[in-house]
Write a protein that binds this DNA or RNA. Structure first.
Length: 924
RNA sequence: GGGCGGGUAGCUCAGCGGUAGAGCGUCGGUCUUACAAACCGAAUGUCGCAGGUUCGACCCCUGUCCCGCCCACCA
């Protein structure tokens, strides 16, 4: 009933959505909150993607990883919870909706704040769920009934609660400081949101400040990379010990464009007398060093910039100019006044806005900050004590370095979309009132009228609470007590500081416990050249295209629409001329799992995806074969291997199954899903398909009913167990096949909730079978080599003579049928290992077995000579190595005896091989 | 300026103290009754360079050269 319905090639497009719907409908993803459920839990909080987002390879990679962990633990019987959700993503979302408005010819200011925010909500309801739908296509088994959004009422409440408590403890404060300002986003940014572009070719421009009238003669020459900032200069500084300028101490220079005399100050901290002229212009309002200097000397802080990056009234004649225009204008004006003193090339670092790439301006502004140092301390300690384990471990150093040098966190943003800051200012005095609700009466005066702070919080502020806010905090819910702390947090290393560190901080502060036990940091997915995927470069590989397939025209059209450059489109066309086939979610998942998590870069290759798609198909066909042979038979999968199998192939595959399961377990335990998936991949393809299924053919055709029965029982057991072991990695195809496998009546309705297989239970270690099988494989391999090298057509049966010492010979005699079938040969045995080799005979040696094929004049003797010489050369090389090793007295004395014994045994077998090969060569 | 990671087969990478591995690619052969998205076979490496430790080093140590990334206020 089953195998006939299975087409030769597996098509994931039909299968995958069908099973996902069933799983979801049956509620199999749901974690239990039943009060009497005392199973151990396992929890992962998803790194919430931006609501604006759509699935990219980074998400696909993490989703796969997390889903494997969750499915594995679920099969082990844990009460598993994978909390899904999205992040409101402040700027990103606001920009999307603003862009939409622009198409209607409107700006957010036309709507006003309230209407605008309403509009964003509307947009969020309509199109915000895209990415979560896409996660389903990957097979993500999230508990959708617990989906959260960082601006849900519950989570917003958590945000206010945290803000208020931190404020009350003095850990949140409002201050006027030099902050990073993005003139394009028109908001303050935290230090982390500023990316520095290194080694930019810039210009160091020199100009002179004339000494002010009545202060003496001459001038001082200063250098700057930002000439326009001189409009905000309120001092020039020299080193106190620099004798060149002693005469100017306490004097003034004259600002060339503004009615301002500027003091000459001495400052040993700011000024390096060796650098340039040894004079530094000081702009406290627009440079961090100068700001600090200004504080030390109580200098005026003159802000010259408007929030949009144009110059304000302080700039005098330059007022209203855009900042870079002003830069040129100031230089020209200095030229005109004869004050320019030349310029030179200068390599510098440019601060840019992480989001829009605009050059960031340091400006003085009043913002809200979190005092980080006291909060960071316990967060450092839990990692030191291993209560939170960071994997791969080398990231702990990075974590410590950042946490130990932590700066206060600027959390206010001048946006409209986000969590409003729960601070109100009384109308009369502007007294600050922070609270969970709007105040009715000022805490410091009697005022009852307030205006709320207009800023919103950094989007990472609410993300930092994610592991407990999603579970209902500050309410004491069952979920919170049951699922916090979560177990594993898997995310990209690029947000180690943005997110991971802050979750640890907030978790410890408000839950008194770590938010998760392990942090798994994944690398960045790049294109096959190792270049970062970007829309402009046109090298973005969309997981959905990989899953469902896309023609090159579709890919090109999409890339072009999202703004790819010509070169990007060319690359795309050249690299994927055929587009993508529908590789399916299972194939993609398996591919993503195969990359080492140690690596910082995952250079995704379509060829590799194709390889794993082929693996999926291989599994399909292997199952097809198995099911064909089980059709109508009484064999059922029971979860137990057949008792006392006698056939070598059956014993061997059960033993190998055990090994594969152990290796998979080990990989999962170590979070080396690459090892786990490789172990199963090689078991399925290299052992199950390449050897066992082939060997099962003669067994299933046997006249001996007992042999057939035993083989069917083994086949169904190995297949069913393998499917369960592969299920976390390839959920769809394993379900599709598993449903067709004959099982006993009590088996669960889905493989998702079937029992995770264990090496000791489902496998059956059998060293003898493994040894015997190695002999058989060697003999078959050697015979095949001869066949291939001599172009002996497959149809022609060849006469084989197998020579081996007693033990090995007995194995080969017992397995005669297998050899006949796999090599298509007649077989004779010869126990006399040292006997003469007949003339004109092809010889190959391996594992103590000598395979002889009389060539009977049919074949090219030169070819055989070449081959033998090649084999001999290899043996000789190995032999030289072993002889040298054993000839070394220190090795024999000092190496562990088992190593020496192993080498001796090897020496023996290599010598025997050499003798055989030489004899063969001589007889040719 | 500090820190981290990497340099292994043509390509992408795994391995990490006891005989150099995988996938893809290459070459030769096969429509063998699960699979041509397959099968069988073959070739391919002074494991960046130089020292050192060790009976033994791709693996550990030191130095060095390249290539990435992160952090940092040098005008």
């Amino acid at each position: 009933m089953t195998s006939e319905e299975m087409p030769k090639a597996y098509d994931p497009r039909e299968t995958e959505p069908r099973w996902y719907e069933l799983w979801e409908r049956e509620g199999l993803f749901r974690a239990s909150d039943a009060p009497d459920d005392d199973r151990p839990t396992y929890t992962i909080a998803i790194p919430p993607p931006n609501v604006t987002g759509s699935l990219h390879m980074g998400h696909a990679c993490r989703t796969t990883f997390e889903d494997v962990l969750i499915r594995h633990k679920r099969m082990q019987g844990r009460n598993t919870l994978w909390i899904p959700g999205t992040d409101h993503a402040g700027i990103a979302t606001q920009v999307v909706v603003e862009r939409q408005l622009k198409r209607e010819g409107l700006s957010r200011h036309d709507l006003g704040r309230e209407k605008f925010v309403e509009r964003v909500w509307k947009w969020k309801e309509e199109s915000g769920g895209t990415i979560l739908r896409q996660l389903r296509k990957m097979g993500a088994s999230c508990d959708w009934s617990r989906e959260r959004f960082t601006m849900d009422p519950g989570l917003s409440r958590a945000v206010r609660e945290v803000f208020v408590r931190l404020y009350e403890e003095g850990l949140i404060y409002r201050a006027t400081r030099l902050i990073n300002w993005c003139v394009d986003c028109r908001t303050a940014l935290s230090d982390l949101e500023v990316e520095s572009e290194e080694n930019v070719e810039g210009e160091l421009f020199d100009f002179a400040y004339p000494v002010a009238e009545g202060e003496g003669e001459g001038e001082v020459v200063v250098s700057t990379t930002r000439p326009e900032t001189m409009l905000g200069d309120t001092a020039v500084a020299v080193h106190p010990d620099d004798e060149r300028y002693t005469h100017l101490h306490g004097k003034f220079v004259q600002h060339p464009f503004l009615p301002r005399r500027i003091p000459v100050i001495t400052d040993a901290e700011l000024v390096d007398p060796e650098f340039g002229t040894g004079v530094v212009k000081v702009t406290p309002a627009h440079d961090p060093n100068d700001f600090a200097t200004g504080k030390r000397h109580d200098l005026d802080e003159i802000n010259i910039l408007n929030l949009d990056g144009t110059l304000n009234a302080e700039a005098g004649p330059f007022q209203g100019m855009e900042r870079f225009k002003a830069r040129r204008a100031v230089k020209e004006a200095l030229e005109a006044k004869g004050l320019a003193r030349g310029s030179k090339k200068h390599l510098m670092t440019l601060p840019r806005c992480q989001r829009c790439n605009t050059i960031v301006e340091p400006i003085i502004s009043t913002q809200w900050f979190v005092k980080m140092e006291p909060l960071a301390k316990p967060a450092i300690e839990v990692v030191e004590r291993g209560e939170v384990q960071i994997i791969p471990e080398e990231w702990t150093k990075t974590y410590f370095h950042w946490m130990r040098n932590i700066q206060d966190w600027c959390i206010s943003r001048q946006l409209w979309w986000g969590h409003p800051i729960p601070a109100w200012y009384c109308e009369r005095h502007g007294h600050v009132n922070v609270g969970r609700e709007a105040p009715t009466r000022c805490g410091e005066c009697d005022e009852t009228q307030f205006r709320q702070d207009e800023d919103v919080l950094d989007t990472w502020f609410s993300s930092a609470l994610w592991p407990f806010s999603t579970l209902g905090w500050p309410e004491q819910t069952i979920d919170l007590s049951r699922f916090y702390p979560t177990d594993d947090m898997e995310t990209g290393y690029d947000i180690l500081f943005f997110w991971v560190a802050r979750m640890i901080v907030m978790g410890l502060k408000f839950m008194g416990d770590v938010p998760f036990r392990r942090v798994l940091l994944a690398g960045l997915v790049t294109d096959e050249r190792g270049e970062k995927m970007s829309k402009v470069k046109g090298n973005v590989v969309d997981p959905l295209d990989v899953i469902g397939g896309a023609t090159i025209d579709e890919l090109l059209a999409k890339a072009e629409k999202s703004g790819a450059q010509r070169s990007g489109l060319d690359y795309l066309e050249k690299t994927y001329p055929e587009g993508f086939a529908a590789y399916g979610a299972d194939g993609l998942r398996m591919t993503l799992l195969s990359y080492s998590p140690q690596s910082r870069r995952i250079a995704l290759s379509i060829k590799r995806i194709e390889g794993y798609r082929n693996f999926v198909n291989k599994l399909w066909n292997a199952s097809r074969y198995a099911l064909m042979n089980l059709d109508g038979a009484e064999a059922r999968a029971t979860g137990e291997p057949p008792a006392a199998p006698r056939e070598l192939a059956n014993r061997w595959i059960l033993s190998r199954l055990g090994h594969a399961l152990s290796a998979a377990d080990q990989g999962l335990e170590d979070y080396r899903l690459d090892d786990a998936s490789q172990a199963l991949y090689h078991f399925v393809w290299g052992e199950l398909c390449d050897w066992y299924l082939e060997l099962s053919k003669p067994l299933l055709a046997s006249d001996d009913e007992a042999v057939v029965r035993e083989t069917r029982a083994t086949l169904v057991h190995v297949l069913e167990t393998t499917l369960r072991a592969l299920h976390p990695m390839m959920p769809f195809i394993t379900e599709e096949i598993w449903q067709r496998v004959p099982k006993h009546d009590a088996s669960p309705k889905s493989i998702m909730v079937a029992r995770w297989p264990e090496a000791e239970r489902e496998g059956r270690a059998d060293e003898e079978a493994e040894r015997d099988m190695a002999v058989l494989q060697a003999a078959i391999g050697a015979a095949r080599t001869i066949r291939a090298e001599h172009d002996l057509p497959r149809k022609k049966e060849i006469p084989l003579v197998l020579r081996a010492a007693d033990g090995a010979r007995a194995v080969l005699e017992r397995e005669q049928a297998a050899i006949r079938f796999l090599v298509r040969a007649s077989v004779e045995y010869d126990g006399n290992v040292d006997a003469e080799i007949p003339p004109r005979t092809a010889v190959s040696v391996a594992e103590g077995v000598t395979v002889l094929v009389p060539l009977a004049g049919l074949v090219d003797l030169d070819k055989e000579r070449d081959r033998l010489e090649r084999e001999l050369k290899k043996v000789d090389k190995d032999l030289t190595g072993v002889e040298k090793k054993l000839g070394n007295a220190s090795f024999v004395d000092r190496a562990p005896p088992e190593v020496v014994d192993k080498e001796r045994a090897r020496l023996e077998s290599l010598r025997a091989e050499k003798t055989q090969l030489e004899a063969a060569l001589a007889k040719l």
